[in-house]
């Protein structure tokens, strides 16, 4: 469980993270969504003690990350960008981290296999592709078999195989009862794996919502109406409180009233309907609406 309370971090005059509070629960994948620059990476860095907050607290399992006796066994983290010396092999890199905790070379070999790097374990990391570097980063996150896993944009640079691997891994980790926080700026990618969403913009929390709730909340965005009696309908719908826009081809885009109400209204005015199509907002749209309206 990750608990973030009133976390604030300023860089100069701008607040990268601005009074952010949320809780990430175990047993599900929590997507951390927001446009680039929303404060996702900074928040993740503060959770693992790399950035010092100006105010507020971040705790993992009830204690600040920095005070734990075995940090790698508490939180596994993949941060943005390479974090490997080019001259060391994948195995040497992981051993350098594992030894600080007395984690065995056998566990290092295990996570290399899990990350699909078994064959590249003794190659220098300097020659790794972006995708392989990401896999090595994920391997290092899993090293301590941690109850909390934090991954910053893990699919960046991965090939389709790698993307599929990450998706499966995230779901497996959550199914094992771990707390999984994974950031992305893409709703399309997050929607595939996440059960819960934290949406941030401008360093503030915009939504803390289950993916199913968001789908429901997204609801109907508008109805497309075609009718030979468009003029009659237009005024009746406007009177009923709808926002109506006339398209060039004579169709009406109606917002603010449900399809059922439009049908009833049309019947009461004896207006013929040729088409009445409700359009559901996509998750992508819901996400855009949330980040645009409140960011």
């Amino acid at each position: 469980m990750i608990e973030v309370r009133e976390l604030t971090k300023r860089f100069g005059a701008t607040a990268a993270v601005d009074g952010l509070s949320f809780t990430v629960r175990p047993g599900r994948v929590t997507g951390f969504l927001g446009p680039n620059g929303a404060g996702k990476s900074t928040t993740m860095r503060m959770i693992v003690g790399l950035d010092r907050p100006d105010s507020g607290t971040a705790t993992v399992g009830g204690r600040p990350y920095r005070t734990g006796p075995a940090p790698l066994c508490t939180v596994g983290v993949l941060l943005e960008g390479r974090a490997v010396h080019r001259g060391r092999t994948a195995r040497q890199h992981l051993l350098g981290l594992a030894r600080t905790h007395g984690i065995s070379a056998r566990r290092v070999a295990e996570v290399l296999d899990m990350a699909g790097l078994g064959g590249a374990a003794d190659r220098r990391a300097g020659g790794f592709s972006l995708g392989m570097s990401q896999r090595l980063g994920v391997a290092s996150a899993l090293l301590g078999d941690p109850a909390v896993v934090i991954l910053d944009e893990p699919v960046n640079g991965l090939d389709p195989d790698g993307v599929l691997w990450i998706r499966t891994l995230l779901k497996d980790l959550a199914a094992q009862g771990r707390t999984v926080l994974v950031s992305s700026h893409l709703m399309s990618e997050t929607a595939v794996t996440a059960d819960h969403l934290l949406i941030i913009g401008g360093g503030r929390l915009l939504a803390d919502v289950g993916i199913d709730d968001l789908i429901t909340r997204a609801g109907t965005s508008h109805c497309l109406v075609r009718s030979p009696d468009a003029a009659v309908l237009h005024s009746a719908l406007t009177a009923a409180g709808a926002t109506v826009t006339a398209e060039d081809d004579g169709a009406l885009i109606v917002r603010g009233v449900a399809a059922e109400r439009i049908g009833t209204l049309a019947a009461s005015r004896h207006a013929t309907l040729h088409e009445l199509t409700p359009h559901r907002a996509s998750l992508e749209q819901a996400y855009m609406d949330i980040t645009r309206s409140r960011a």
């Binding site: 860095r45 693992v48 003690g49 790399l50 990350y65 920095r66 734990g68 940090p71 790698l72 939180v75 983290v77 941060l79 974090a83 490997v84 350098g96 981290l97 600080t100 905790h101 290092s140």
Partner: peptide, 8 residues
């Protein structure tokens, strides 16, 4: 960053 995440 990896080093300090391991030894905060």
């Amino acid at each position: 960053r990896a080093t300090f995440a391991a030894v905060p």
